[in-house]
Design a protein around this nucleic acid. Structure first.
Lengths: 337, 337
DNA sequence: CTGAAAGCGCTTACAG
DNA sequence: CTGAAAGCGCTTACAG
């Protein structure tokens, strides 16, 4: 079943293919009557222009890439969904790429997306590798960072004030009366986590409380490793009364470790997460967490990307959004000594 | 920064573009020496063939579509991740399309994917609409159904024996001593849910227990609606001692409804889900559920799709996998009357 | 306002 | 074994 091409509609409408093309794209001058005729023929023949052919002529492919660490991680799958809807309603489709935060995957995907001539890329995965940054810098397609930074290359970025988020968590815990706290972080090379921890320490510092290095643990960002690391904290000689986790996955690991150790949350241990994913509403107790305004962030990032498509030299923006504390059940006052 | 084309490497290597093309694709005869030279030049020039141009010549686009109800739903995001990895390692990329089970979205996405010349589509969303089935039937690209059926069109499908899954749940509950049970289902028009309920009823029936229509509720497939529907069941005059939910999302809704009503799970009410998503390990109590062997299913489906790419007339298979009961904490014996 | 022609970057017979 | 040429389905000056 050969698809109908522009030639078929040209012949059927008794005009040249150039005129059909013009009618479709609203380019050149086509008389209203002709245009209508052509549109009707297109309808009748069920003609759909080939994106491939027009892409070859240097037009857009109407495809964008989305680079994230892992689609199966709820935080990112929620982002993916928002991106997809936005893209869809502007006529774009999105190729999803899970990087696992691994440089070789990032690089491979970037090359792949380039080969497919995507119009632009939304990046929500870490970009620390100098080689990759150099690779990206020489590309012609626009890039927008979302919830992450990319130092040294000229791109738009939309992020949350992670430092402030950490601070928010510290203040809240302090307000509840906690004095002995610990931190469970994702790998420090992930800049957002690093900032969250810095902010948290700063919040504590302002209240005259300092955090010893051994009270800050880091591990891979998944439930299992979070659980293991949290178990170590819980078993420690001086168990903290509150634990700040750099994301919900780690917080859930902590929740599980506490359950296994027979420590009740929040009565004996307060746990606070970050991201406000669907997971935080599903645990029991539900999770107090720091929310990023993801829908807005994705919307902003997407609009910046689409804007860059037509105007590559626009001034690169760095938009910083404010995080918010979402209080649920996993936090409370410290136990009375 | 113009990308280097086949002309550049041809000139640089002192051969014709035809020879370069042949060297790349291993077509025609190219002397070993020439081929190596060309490959070196390609390397040096950092040449990457344009997928677009070769797609226009009727070659593959190395892009597949994935149609699922919602990427942000953990069950599907886990599928998406597996598909992505499989695709990636075979040189394909995947365009993710969330349909929300809405016919107009399904249709729009199918047209979009066709326009983009995807090589094939993996469908994990319901396909009941006759118009859409007709649309699909006339398409030239291969389609593989995953965890869903598509009646009346010639496609491969890989599914779980949903009936058996329902039966498994019934047997297990029966074995625990439950006699008064209820069902919380997703919309019955979703065939997999319908089968699960049928299987569950059958399991009960074999033990001489029948289910009244009012003990089977259906609602939208999300936590909130599940919670609301479960609340109605719980408040009912004769509260069941066990509740079978057609998927984990609904089961979580039920868990929340129970918590809110002050009913303890599993002591006063056993709850069993379906799908074994990450969510079922995160709740408290953790969720007993019926697992589908998704990784295997996705792998099979993907391989069938890739196979169909080269051989469109292969005999369409219908592979049925066996579900498995995963016992966690949300189920137990019924309370003593 | 409309059409002939060139060209995008490839692949594929076909001729040599 | 290698290359000239046609063609995939479009778009874009350009001429009329």
């Amino acid at each position: 079943m050969k698809a109908t091409t522009i030639y078929d509609v040209a012949k059927e409408a008794g005009v040249s293919i150039a005129t059909v093309s013009n009618a479709i794209n609203g380019k050149g001058k086509v008389s209203k009557k002709r245009r209508e005729e052509i549109l009707q023929v297109m309808e009748r023949l069920n003609y759909q222009p080939s994106v491939i052919a027009s892409a070859l002529m240097g037009k857009k492919t109407y495809t964008i890439g989305l680079l994230i660490p892992d689609v199966s991680n709820p935080f990112f799958s929620e982002i993916a969904r928002t991106v997809e809807d936005l893209a869809h309603s502007s006529g774009y489709s999105v190729i999803v790429c899970s990087t696992d935060n691994r440089d070789e995957r990032v690089e491979k995907y970037i090359r792949l997306l380039e080969q497919k001539n995507v119009d632009g890329i939304l990046i929500g995965t870490g970009l620390e590798n100098a080689e990759i940054l150099a690779l990206l810098a020489e590309k012609s397609f626009p890039i927008v960072m979302i919830a992450r930074e990319a130092a040294g290359i000229s791109v738009h970025s939309v992020l949350t004030d992670d430092f402030r988020g950490g601070e928010l968590a510290a203040r809240y815990l302090l307000g509840k009366g906690h004095k002995r706290v610990a931190v469970l972080s994702e790998n420090f090379k992930v800049s957002s986590s690093f900032e969250r921890v810095r902010g948290f320490r700063f919040g504590l510092f302002e209240a005259g409380i300092s955090l010893n290095p051994e009270e800050i643990l880091s591990c891979e960002s998944n439930i299992k490793d979070g659980k293991r690391a949290a178990a170590a904290i819980i078993r420690g000689s001086e168990r903290p009364t509150a634990l700040f986790c750099c994301n919900d996955l780690l917080a859930i690991g902590a929740l599980q470790a506490a359950k296994e150790a027979g420590i009740s949350v929040p009565e004996q241990l307060s746990i606070i997460g970050f991201d406000d994913t669907i997971l935080s509403t599903v645990t029991n107790p539900t999770l107090t967490t720091i929310a990023q305004p993801m829908d807005q962030m994705v919307k902003l990032a997407f609009d910046l990307l689409i804007g860059s498509l037509d105007n590559a030299d626009d001034i690169k923006q760095r938009i910083v959004m404010q995080p918010e504390l979402v209080i649920r059940e996993s936090t409370g006052s410290p136990p009375i000594e």
